[in-house]
């Protein structure tokens, strides 16, 4: 079990040893090995992103099917698990349409940059023991800062499309993203106050030493999940993508591979949110018997399934209710939570 637990760490060490040997052979300074390792870590994160997106696309369709009393995609591959392959191949070969009056550069850039924020966030995510690519002292703050960026490509997409529906969607995205940052920050603040550190690995250690933070901060956990849905533009907060109101909302003018990038980036954003929830509240990669990274994947799977379940169950919230809910319900609730947490921590310390 130790071997499986450390398998990725061992692979990384092997790569580092290989680079060191290569550099010694070529007579270059050994410090360059670390620079080369950046490329290896980045490759690992890209692989994780791509696989999670591909997996969760089909899992969403199948789970939606089970909720709706039907089988879901079940023809291609064993029980239908390879349907995303067909989707990917088709999206690659579609014609690329850029509408006439659209801003061509921003239209393309928005699609390309959609994947960047989740990749940056996953760089600091602890996948397992010693499997954090970027173990920052301010890990939590870094991830929060980077996930805020995730709504920027969506805004650019809506703005650049020369389409009223897209513009409406873009405005709604900004509304939501900015507003729901505040309760999210307060949730994370509550966790940090209890654990006493910003470092993600140390938060996990604290939880291993004491108790999972979901038991100490249940309100913060629930509010965190709600704000995560809002940040990722998932139902019931999926107004930017409108659907029954206005065709495809922000992504109305996106076709083919550009649309695929947004589509997959949405799942990566959700994966980041689920990963952060796991790390902060559910004890991260710790657990008996199985290797750490398997536990991490299992826990994020549970939270992602919860996100998908909520998406297919609830109606959409109206645009003005989104804001009243945030500012009049969540923010006072979280401020009260922070107050109570602070008092308790002070008394017990």
């Amino acid at each position: 079990m130790e071997f499986v637990n450390n398998i990725f760490v061992n692979i990384a060490d092997l790569c580092r040893a290989l680079f060191v040997w290569l550099l010694n052979l070529l007579g270059l300074p050994v410090g360059l090995a670390e620079v080369a390792m950046v490329a290896v870590y980045w490759l690992g994160i890209v692989i994780v992103c791509v696989f999670c997106a591909l997996f969760y696309v089909i899992w969403e369709r199948k789970l939606a099917g089970y909720i709706q009393r039907r089988p879901g995609p079940n023809r291609l591959g064993p029980n239908g698990w390879f349907h995303t392959v067909g989707d990917a191949i088709k999206l690659v070969m579609k014609e690329d349409i850029v509408p006439d009056g659209a801003d061509k550069n921003v239209h393309l850039l928005a699609a390309l940059l959609a994947f960047v924020p989740p990749m940056l966030a996953l760089a600091a995510m602890p996948f397992g023991e010693g499997m954090t690519a970027l173990d920052l002292e301010l890990g939590v703050v870094y991830i929060m800062a980077v996930t805020t960026l995730a709504s920027l490509p969506v805004l650019c997409a809506g703005y650049a499309s020369n389409n009223k529906f897209a513009m409406m969607g873009a405005m709604r995205v900004v509304n939501q993203a900015i507003s729901y940052e505040v309760p999210q920050a307060l949730c994370i603040l509550s966790v940090i106050m209890v654990a006493g550190t910003f470092n993600l690995n140390q938060i996990i250690d604290w939880q291993t030493g004491n108790i999972w933070l979901v038991c100490l901060q249940p309100v913060a956990f629930v509010v965190y999940l709600i704000t995560a849905l809002a940040e990722c533009n998932r139902a019931p907060f999926d107004l930017p993508e409108g659907e029954s109101e206005l065709t495809a909302g922000v992504f109305t003018e996106y076709s083919g591979m550009r649309y695929a990038l947004f589509y997959l980036a949405e799942y990566c954003n959700m994966f980041v949110a689920a990963g952060l929830a796991t790390t902060l509240f559910l004890g991260g990669f710790t657990g008996p018997f199985l290797p750490g990274w398997v536990w991490f994947l299992l826990k994020t799977f549970v939270i992602m399934s919860f996100f998908i379940w909520v998406r297919w169950s609830f109606p959409r919230i109206r645009a003005d209710h989104v804001l009243t809910f945030c500012w009049k319900v969540l923010v006072p609730l979280m401020l009260a939570n922070v107050l109570v947490t602070g008092v308790v921590v002070y008394l017990l310390a």
Binding site: I67, A235, P236, S244, S313, F314, P315, R316
Partner: peptide
């Protein structure tokens, strides 16, 4: 369904 809860139409 038009309100957003797609499963409720099935």
């Amino acid at each position: 369904m038009d309100l957003g809860a797609v499963s409720a139409v099935f």
